[in-house]
Structure formats: C-alpha cells, structure tokens
C-alpha cells in the first residue's frame, strides 16, 4: 500500500450513531474536517438498528421523534460540514506516529492518518451473535459463517441455516437453488420477517425443495474445522442429525467492545474512562463520547453525548490548530458559520 492510499483527516470518528454524527457538527463549527467509520452498513447506530420506529421524547426541542428520524435530522444538520462516511468497516488497529498523530487501519484494509481520534462507539461494535454450541469456534470462518460474502462458495453444499428473522429467511430463499440442500432450523413456525418471505419459505418446504425443522441447533460434528453434521434438538425433544457442509447461524447482533480493548486506554468495566472537561481518554488526543465513556455521574443519554461532543471539540481544536486562536461563536450571530449553513 502506498502513501496515496492513506486518507488524511483532522479527526477520525469511530461510530456513526447519533453522538458520532453530532460530533461532526461540533467539530465542523471549529472548521475541523471529519471522516466517520462504522461497522454497520448504515449510519445511526443503535437508533437505526434497535429502535428506528420507537419514539424518543427526551431530545431537547424535539417533543417526539423516532430513532430513524433523529438520525435523518442529524445527517441533514451536519451536511454543511461534508463528513465522509466509511461504512461496514471495523477499526482494527491504531498506532501512534512520533508526532503524536494516529495511523488507523480497518479490517477491510482502509488506512487513515488523523490528528485526533473520537471514539463514539456506543455499547461497542455490533457483531453477529454466536450460538452457544460447544466447539463452534473451531469451525468459524471455515464452515460456519455469520454472513454470506460469496454465494458461489456455497454452490453444491448442504446448508443448515438457523434463525427467525429476515436474514435467515432471505438466505434460505436465495440459496436453495445454489446449494444441494437447505435445511432451515427455527424454534417457532412464526418468523420476524417480511410476510411474503415467510409464505415463500413454507411453499418451498411443502414442495420438498427445502427442509424446515422446528428446533434448536445444539451440536456439531466434523473435524479440523470441516463440518459434517449439525445436531438439532427438535421441539418434541428428539435429537436429529442433519448432514451439512456449511452452517449459517443468523441470531441477530450483539455488541462487544472489540478491538478498542487493545488500544491501551484506561477502561472501567468495558467503558472508556474520560475526564469531564474535555472527554479525553487516558491517552492524549483520543477522546471518547456517548455511551462508550464513563465518568462520575455519567448518564447514558443521547442528550449527554451531545454535550460531551461540544466540550471535546474545543480541546480537539487546540491540538489540531495550535497556532490559531479558538474563537467561540454562536450559530445565531456568526456570519461565517451562517454562510456555511446557507450554502449547504
């Protein structure tokens, strides 16, 4: 990789939830440019993933909004500052340069060079939930996958798919013509998925094109990471062995602190310790805002995260523009700020 491939930015924000998005705004007011990385393939974090339709009543000035409308509004609000998003990317490595700036690498190979890092990672990175089947780790990445990257890699294979949501159903419908056999395993005959997908799945099962088993995957057989069979405990208590080459569990997402744990930051019960003046971590020029941080009196509220970004931005400016005077300006009266908003 050459130096041209490195993305240079004032600030790299890790996490595109509401607080990460608003950090773009507060940093933007101080003329600091931001790139934003998120492991999900969409912005909004928990607001979009967990409660897009649920009402939120405690955002100042917005008597009620939904998780998704809050995210949409924030995107509109920060648009004048032209943030650049890199989605579906997990920040894996962080290394310090001799001058105190940061080299950051994602699992997909993106490289950034940033003066300041802002961790707005909420409860951590979303990762697929691993079913509690003994020995499952040994098969992961070889014959057990939590996402389908290449359909062709599954051609002619015997697949067991587990789960009760859209992912399990969509992949059952998409893969049954590619695979030599698809068995869908779920505890209930109801699915939390598009009714049309559910209907299609039952039609395929009735026609004998796929197998649908009511039960739970409890065991794996195979050797050296190559799966031979999945054991299913059916709802009537019997154990059934299903010959399988690949197992695709779709049990939704869970949140883990992930690689952040290895960056040398002081942690307190899996959250990042910060001061309450600048929301800076134990490592200078790395900040943490929103649910991921902890300090005396911390409340996990979007409101608190927004406040934290404003104070963080002041210190980020001092680091990034050491020779410039920090001018505190209100958006109501600053002509230079108003120009930016009107131009957008």
């Amino acid at each position: 990789m050459t130096s041209e491939d490195v993305i240079n930015t004032d600030v790299l924000i890790i996490g595109a939830g509401p607080v990460g998005l608003f950090a773009v705004f507060e940093l933007g007011l101080l003329d600091l440019k931001c790139h934003v990385v998120d492991v999900l393939d969409k912005v909004g974090g928990q607001c979009s993933e967990f409660y897009p339709e649920k009402p939120i009543y405690d955002i100042p000035g917005l008597p009620v909004c939904t998780g998704q409308s809050l995210v949409d509004n924030l995107l509109q609000q920060i648009a004048p500052f032209e943030p650049v998003f890199h989605l579906g990317q997990l920040v894996s490595q962080v290394a310090e340069h001799p001058d105190g700036s940061w080299s950051v690498t994602t699992d997909e190979g993106l490289r950034f060079h940033a003066g300041v890092l802002v961790i707005a990672a909420g409860a951590g990175c979303f990762t697929p939930r691993r079913p509690p089947i003994p020995g499952i780790e040994g098969y992961e990445g070889k014959s057990i996958f939590y996402a389908v990257r290449k359909i062709e890699a599954l051609r002619g294979k015997r697949l067991v798919i587990a789960g009760g949501g859209d992912s399990a159903l969509d992949w059952t419908l998409n893969l049954h013509q590619v695979a030599s056999r698809v068995t869908l395993v779920h505890r209930r005959p109801e699915f939390r998925a598009a009714p049309d997908s559910t209907r299609k799945m039952f039609e395929l099962a009735e026609a004998g094109a796929i197998d649908f088993v009511l039960g739970e995957c409890v065991g794996l057989d195979g050797s050296a990471g190559e799966l031979a069979a999945v054991t299913v405990k059916t709802n009537d208590g019997a154990l059934e062995t299903i010959a399988a080459d690949r197992f695709l569990p779709f049990y939704g997402l869970t949140m883990k602190l992930g690689p952040i744990a290895g960056w040398g930051l002081n942690l307190n019960e899996n959250r990042i310790a910060v001061d309450t003046e600048k929301f800076e971590t134990s490592v200078s020029t790395i900040f943490a805002v929103g649910d991921i941080n902890v300090y005396p009196g911390k409340l996990k509220l979007i409101l608190s995260g927004f406040h934290e970004t404003a104070l963080m931005a002041q210190q980020a400016f001092r680091y990034l523009r050491p020779n410039k005077k920090l001018l505190f300006q209100y958006t109501t009266t600053s002509t230079s700020l108003q120009k930016k908003f009107k131009a957008a």
């Binding site: 939930r129 079913p131 009760g164 949501g165 505890r187 109801e190 939390r192 739970e216 049990y251 939704g252």
Partner: peptide
C-alpha cells in the same frame, strides 16, 4: 415470544 425464540437455554 419472537425474541425469546432466539435466546439460549430457553
């Protein structure tokens, strides 16, 4: 019911 159906050790 739906969410529980994906929990472990039901």
């Amino acid at each position: 019911e739906m969410t529980l159906s994906e929990a472990a050790e039901l």
